[in-house]
Amino acid sequence: MRDAVKRLSDFVEKRIAVLFMIPTIITLGLVLFFPLLYSLTISFYRWSVARPFLGKTFVFFQNYSKALTDPAFLVAIRNTFVFTFFAVAVELILGIAVALLLHGNFKGKTFFQTALFLPVVTTPVAVGIIWRILFLTDVGLIPYLFQLAGFERVTFLSSPVLAMVAVIFVDIWQTTPFAFTLILAGLSSLPSEPYEAAMIDGATSWQRFFYVTLPLLKPVIVVVLLIRVMDAFRVFDTIYILTGGGPGSATESVSTFTVRTAFQYFNTGYASALAYVVFIIIAVMSYLMIKGFKIETSEL
Protein backbone atom coordinates (compact mmCIF):
# COMPACT_ATOMS: atom_id res chain seq x y z
CA MET A 1 0.00 0.00 0.00
CA ARG A 2 2.70 2.46 1.00
CA ASP A 3 4.52 1.31 -2.06
CA ALA A 4 1.60 2.09 -4.27
CA VAL A 5 1.20 5.56 -2.77
CA LYS A 6 4.85 6.24 -3.29
CA ARG A 7 4.69 5.02 -6.86
CA LEU A 8 1.69 7.24 -7.46
CA SER A 9 3.32 10.31 -6.02
CA ASP A 10 6.45 9.53 -7.97
CA PHE A 11 4.37 9.35 -11.10
CA VAL A 12 2.77 12.72 -10.34
CA GLU A 13 6.15 14.18 -9.57
CA LYS A 14 7.46 13.02 -12.87
CA ARG A 15 4.46 14.43 -14.64
CA ILE A 16 5.02 17.78 -12.96
CA ALA A 17 8.61 17.67 -14.04
CA VAL A 18 7.62 17.16 -17.65
CA LEU A 19 4.73 19.58 -17.39
CA PHE A 20 6.98 22.32 -16.12
CA MET A 21 9.42 21.64 -18.88
CA ILE A 22 6.84 21.81 -21.66
CA PRO A 23 6.69 25.61 -22.09
CA THR A 24 10.46 25.79 -22.34
CA ILE A 25 10.57 22.96 -24.83
CA ILE A 26 7.79 24.43 -26.94
CA THR A 27 9.33 27.89 -27.00
CA LEU A 28 12.80 26.65 -27.85
CA GLY A 29 11.38 24.21 -30.36
CA LEU A 30 9.22 26.72 -32.16
CA VAL A 31 11.45 29.76 -32.02
CA LEU A 32 14.93 28.24 -32.11
CA PHE A 33 15.01 24.73 -33.48
CA PHE A 34 12.24 24.81 -36.03
CA PRO A 35 13.59 27.99 -37.64
CA LEU A 36 17.00 26.40 -37.61
CA LEU A 37 15.73 23.49 -39.69
CA TYR A 38 13.69 25.77 -41.87
CA SER A 39 16.78 27.81 -42.56
CA LEU A 40 18.66 24.65 -43.48
CA THR A 41 16.14 23.81 -46.18
CA ILE A 42 16.22 27.36 -47.51
CA SER A 43 19.98 27.18 -47.80
CA PHE A 44 19.60 24.61 -50.57
CA TYR A 45 17.62 26.96 -52.77
CA ARG A 46 18.46 29.87 -54.96
CA TRP A 47 15.70 32.13 -53.80
CA SER A 48 15.01 35.70 -52.78
CA VAL A 49 12.13 36.57 -50.52
CA ALA A 50 11.97 40.02 -52.08
CA ARG A 51 11.96 38.76 -55.65
CA PRO A 52 9.53 35.86 -55.72
CA PHE A 53 9.05 36.51 -59.44
CA LEU A 54 12.57 35.27 -60.10
CA GLY A 55 11.62 31.84 -58.84
CA LYS A 56 12.91 29.33 -56.33
CA THR A 57 15.38 26.76 -57.64
CA PHE A 58 16.71 23.78 -55.74
CA VAL A 59 20.48 23.96 -56.13
CA PHE A 60 21.75 21.31 -53.69
CA PHE A 61 25.01 22.49 -52.16
CA GLN A 62 25.67 25.19 -54.71
CA ASN A 63 25.12 27.96 -52.16
CA TYR A 64 27.65 26.32 -49.87
CA SER A 65 30.25 25.83 -52.57
CA LYS A 66 29.72 29.44 -53.62
CA ALA A 67 30.12 30.54 -50.00
CA LEU A 68 33.40 28.71 -49.59
CA THR A 69 34.79 30.24 -52.78
CA ASP A 70 33.33 33.71 -52.34
CA PRO A 71 36.38 35.95 -51.77
CA ALA A 72 34.27 38.48 -49.87
CA PHE A 73 33.03 35.85 -47.45
CA LEU A 74 36.48 34.35 -47.03
CA VAL A 75 37.81 37.79 -46.18
CA ALA A 76 34.99 38.17 -43.66
CA ILE A 77 35.92 34.82 -42.11
CA ARG A 78 39.56 35.82 -41.92
CA ASN A 79 38.68 39.18 -40.37
CA THR A 80 36.41 37.53 -37.84
CA PHE A 81 39.14 35.13 -36.79
CA VAL A 82 41.64 37.98 -36.47
CA PHE A 83 39.13 39.98 -34.48
CA THR A 84 38.22 37.07 -32.24
CA PHE A 85 41.82 36.06 -31.63
CA PHE A 86 43.19 39.45 -30.68
CA ALA A 87 40.12 40.68 -28.84
CA VAL A 88 39.76 37.55 -26.72
CA ALA A 89 43.49 37.20 -26.06
CA VAL A 90 43.81 40.76 -24.81
CA GLU A 91 40.57 40.50 -22.84
CA LEU A 92 41.80 37.39 -21.05
CA ILE A 93 45.18 38.82 -20.17
CA LEU A 94 43.75 42.16 -19.19
CA GLY A 95 40.93 40.41 -17.35
CA ILE A 96 43.38 38.44 -15.23
CA ALA A 97 45.47 41.54 -14.59
CA VAL A 98 42.52 43.67 -13.55
CA ALA A 99 41.15 40.87 -11.40
CA LEU A 100 44.48 40.65 -9.58
CA LEU A 101 44.53 44.43 -9.17
CA LEU A 102 41.06 44.41 -7.70
CA HIS A 103 41.61 41.38 -5.52
CA GLY A 104 41.85 41.90 -1.82
CA ASN A 105 40.78 44.79 0.32
CA PHE A 106 41.90 48.32 -0.27
CA LYS A 107 40.50 51.78 -0.05
CA GLY A 108 38.13 52.68 -2.87
CA LYS A 109 37.76 49.11 -4.06
CA THR A 110 34.02 49.37 -4.59
CA PHE A 111 34.44 52.56 -6.58
CA PHE A 112 37.04 51.08 -8.90
CA GLN A 113 35.17 47.84 -9.23
CA THR A 114 31.97 49.65 -10.18
CA ALA A 115 33.65 52.07 -12.53
CA LEU A 116 35.59 49.40 -14.35
CA PHE A 117 32.49 47.22 -14.52
CA LEU A 118 30.28 49.76 -16.27
CA PRO A 119 31.31 49.21 -19.90
CA VAL A 120 29.88 45.70 -19.82
CA VAL A 121 26.35 46.92 -19.13
CA THR A 122 26.36 49.48 -21.93
CA THR A 123 24.32 48.98 -25.07
CA PRO A 124 26.59 47.79 -27.90
CA VAL A 125 24.91 50.17 -30.35
CA ALA A 126 25.62 53.08 -28.02
CA VAL A 127 29.18 51.86 -27.65
CA GLY A 128 29.55 51.93 -31.42
CA ILE A 129 28.21 55.48 -31.42
CA ILE A 130 30.52 56.61 -28.64
CA TRP A 131 33.61 55.35 -30.36
CA ARG A 132 32.48 56.60 -33.72
CA ILE A 133 32.32 60.05 -32.19
CA LEU A 134 35.80 59.54 -30.79
CA PHE A 135 37.39 57.93 -33.86
CA LEU A 136 35.85 59.72 -36.84
CA THR A 137 38.41 61.85 -38.60
CA ASP A 138 36.27 64.98 -38.83
CA VAL A 139 34.88 65.17 -35.31
CA GLY A 140 36.93 62.65 -33.39
CA LEU A 141 39.06 63.47 -30.41
CA ILE A 142 41.46 60.62 -31.03
CA PRO A 143 42.55 61.57 -34.59
CA TYR A 144 42.86 65.12 -33.26
CA LEU A 145 45.26 64.01 -30.54
CA PHE A 146 47.28 62.13 -33.13
CA GLN A 147 47.37 65.23 -35.29
CA LEU A 148 48.65 67.21 -32.32
CA ALA A 149 51.37 64.64 -31.97
CA GLY A 150 52.32 65.24 -35.56
CA PHE A 151 50.55 62.38 -37.33
CA GLU A 152 48.59 64.52 -39.74
CA ARG A 153 46.89 61.79 -41.75
CA VAL A 154 46.18 59.20 -39.09
CA THR A 155 42.62 58.26 -39.83
CA PHE A 156 41.40 55.37 -37.79
CA LEU A 157 38.25 54.48 -39.62
CA SER A 158 39.74 54.82 -43.08
CA SER A 159 42.90 52.83 -42.66
CA PRO A 160 42.32 49.10 -43.00
CA VAL A 161 44.71 48.10 -40.24
CA LEU A 162 43.79 50.89 -37.84
CA ALA A 163 40.08 50.30 -38.39
CA MET A 164 40.54 46.70 -37.30
CA VAL A 165 42.58 47.90 -34.33
CA ALA A 166 39.78 50.29 -33.44
CA VAL A 167 37.11 47.62 -33.66
CA ILE A 168 39.16 45.23 -31.53
CA PHE A 169 39.91 47.98 -29.03
CA VAL A 170 36.23 48.78 -28.65
CA ASP A 171 35.42 45.14 -28.01
CA ILE A 172 38.17 44.98 -25.39
CA TRP A 173 36.84 48.13 -23.80
CA GLN A 174 33.39 46.69 -23.55
CA THR A 175 33.96 43.08 -22.56
CA THR A 176 37.08 43.05 -20.39
CA PRO A 177 34.80 43.68 -17.39
CA PHE A 178 33.06 40.42 -18.19
CA ALA A 179 36.38 38.61 -18.04
CA PHE A 180 37.68 40.26 -14.89
CA THR A 181 34.35 39.84 -13.09
CA LEU A 182 34.35 36.09 -13.59
CA ILE A 183 38.03 35.74 -12.86
CA LEU A 184 37.69 37.85 -9.73
CA ALA A 185 34.86 35.61 -8.57
CA GLY A 186 37.13 32.65 -9.24
CA LEU A 187 39.98 34.27 -7.33
CA SER A 188 37.88 34.88 -4.25
CA SER A 189 36.91 31.25 -4.02
CA LEU A 190 40.41 29.84 -4.29
CA PRO A 191 41.51 27.48 -1.53
CA SER A 192 44.31 28.70 0.67
CA GLU A 193 46.18 25.41 1.20
CA PRO A 194 48.19 25.44 -2.04
CA TYR A 195 49.42 28.92 -1.21
CA GLU A 196 50.46 27.92 2.24
CA ALA A 197 52.34 25.00 0.73
CA ALA A 198 53.96 27.29 -1.81
CA MET A 199 54.93 29.74 0.91
CA ILE A 200 56.55 26.99 2.85
CA ASP A 201 58.45 25.98 -0.27
CA GLY A 202 59.64 29.56 -0.49
CA ALA A 203 58.04 30.39 -3.86
CA THR A 204 58.28 33.95 -5.11
CA SER A 205 55.09 35.81 -5.86
CA TRP A 206 55.60 35.30 -9.60
CA GLN A 207 56.08 31.61 -9.07
CA ARG A 208 52.99 31.51 -6.90
CA PHE A 209 51.06 33.24 -9.65
CA PHE A 210 52.22 30.92 -12.42
CA TYR A 211 52.28 27.65 -10.54
CA VAL A 212 49.40 28.07 -8.13
CA THR A 213 47.00 30.82 -9.09
CA LEU A 214 46.84 30.24 -12.83
CA PRO A 215 46.32 26.46 -12.65
CA LEU A 216 43.63 26.94 -10.02
CA LEU A 217 41.95 29.59 -12.13
CA LYS A 218 42.11 27.51 -15.27
CA PRO A 219 38.49 26.32 -15.16
CA VAL A 220 37.22 29.90 -14.90
CA ILE A 221 39.59 31.16 -17.56
CA VAL A 222 38.55 28.39 -19.91
CA VAL A 223 34.89 29.21 -19.43
CA VAL A 224 35.55 32.88 -20.10
CA LEU A 225 37.53 31.91 -23.16
CA LEU A 226 34.76 29.68 -24.48
CA ILE A 227 32.01 32.21 -23.97
CA ARG A 228 34.03 35.09 -25.32
CA VAL A 229 35.10 33.20 -28.42
CA MET A 230 31.50 32.26 -29.18
CA ASP A 231 30.37 35.85 -28.67
CA ALA A 232 33.26 37.54 -30.43
CA PHE A 233 32.85 35.38 -33.47
CA ARG A 234 29.34 36.63 -34.04
CA VAL A 235 30.21 40.31 -33.49
CA PHE A 236 27.75 42.54 -35.27
CA ASP A 237 26.42 45.60 -33.44
CA THR A 238 29.57 47.59 -32.83
CA ILE A 239 31.02 46.93 -36.26
CA TYR A 240 27.73 47.78 -37.94
CA ILE A 241 27.69 51.15 -36.23
CA LEU A 242 31.39 51.93 -36.06
CA THR A 243 32.70 51.04 -39.51
CA GLY A 244 29.90 49.29 -41.37
CA GLY A 245 32.56 46.75 -42.31
CA GLY A 246 34.84 49.28 -44.00
CA PRO A 247 37.13 50.65 -45.13
CA GLY A 248 36.98 48.30 -48.07
CA SER A 249 36.32 44.98 -46.43
CA ALA A 250 38.81 45.56 -43.65
CA THR A 251 36.41 45.05 -40.77
CA GLU A 252 33.71 43.04 -42.50
CA SER A 253 32.68 40.27 -40.11
CA VAL A 254 30.81 37.12 -40.98
CA SER A 255 27.73 38.56 -39.31
CA THR A 256 27.75 41.91 -41.07
CA PHE A 257 28.36 40.18 -44.38
CA THR A 258 25.58 37.66 -43.85
CA VAL A 259 23.10 40.26 -42.68
CA ARG A 260 23.87 42.45 -45.67
CA THR A 261 23.39 39.52 -48.02
CA ALA A 262 20.13 38.60 -46.34
CA PHE A 263 18.52 41.96 -45.74
CA GLN A 264 20.00 44.40 -48.19
CA TYR A 265 20.53 42.18 -51.19
CA PHE A 266 17.79 39.80 -50.14
CA ASN A 267 19.67 36.76 -51.41
CA THR A 268 17.77 34.66 -48.93
CA GLY A 269 18.98 31.21 -49.93
CA TYR A 270 22.61 32.19 -50.17
CA ALA A 271 22.51 34.10 -46.90
CA SER A 272 21.03 31.07 -45.14
CA ALA A 273 23.96 29.01 -46.36
CA LEU A 274 26.39 31.69 -45.14
CA ALA A 275 24.70 31.67 -41.75
CA TYR A 276 25.01 27.91 -41.58
CA VAL A 277 28.71 28.06 -42.36
CA VAL A 278 29.11 30.53 -39.49
CA PHE A 279 27.10 28.25 -37.23
CA ILE A 280 29.23 25.25 -38.15
CA ILE A 281 32.46 27.16 -37.52
CA ILE A 282 31.26 28.22 -34.07
CA ALA A 283 30.04 24.73 -33.25
CA VAL A 284 33.34 23.14 -34.30
CA MET A 285 35.38 25.71 -32.38
CA SER A 286 33.30 25.21 -29.26
CA TYR A 287 33.55 21.46 -29.60
CA LEU A 288 37.32 21.61 -29.98
CA MET A 289 37.65 23.87 -26.98
CA ILE A 290 35.38 21.74 -24.85
CA LYS A 291 37.31 18.63 -25.86
CA GLY A 292 40.69 20.32 -25.68
CA PHE A 293 40.20 21.70 -22.22
CA LYS A 294 38.23 18.67 -21.08
CA ILE A 295 35.31 20.76 -19.86
CA GLU A 296 32.31 18.83 -18.73
CA THR A 297 29.08 20.36 -19.89
CA SER A 298 27.84 20.37 -16.33
CA GLU A 299 30.71 22.66 -15.50
CA LEU A 300 29.46 25.42 -17.72
Partner: peptide
Protein backbone atom coordinates in the same frame (compact mmCIF):
# COMPACT_ATOMS: atom_id res chain seq x y z
CA UNK B 1 18.09 19.09 -22.04
CA UNK B 2 20.91 20.78 -20.20
CA UNK B 3 23.06 20.16 -23.22
CA UNK B 4 20.41 21.48 -25.62
CA UNK B 5 20.10 24.61 -23.56
CA UNK B 6 23.83 25.10 -23.64
CA UNK B 7 23.96 24.38 -27.35
CA UNK B 8 21.28 26.93 -28.08
CA UNK B 9 23.49 29.52 -26.42
CA UNK B 10 26.01 28.84 -29.14
CA UNK B 11 23.60 29.65 -31.96
CA UNK B 12 24.78 32.76 -33.74
CA UNK B 13 22.07 35.33 -34.23
CA UNK B 14 22.55 35.44 -37.97
CA UNK B 15 21.52 31.83 -38.37
CA UNK B 16 18.19 32.53 -36.69
CA UNK B 17 17.36 35.98 -37.88
CA UNK B 18 16.75 34.91 -41.47
CA UNK B 19 14.23 32.11 -40.82
CA UNK B 20 12.58 34.11 -38.04
CA UNK B 21 12.15 37.01 -40.42
CA UNK B 22 10.51 34.70 -42.95
Amino acid sequence: LAFIILASRMLPGVVLVIPLYL
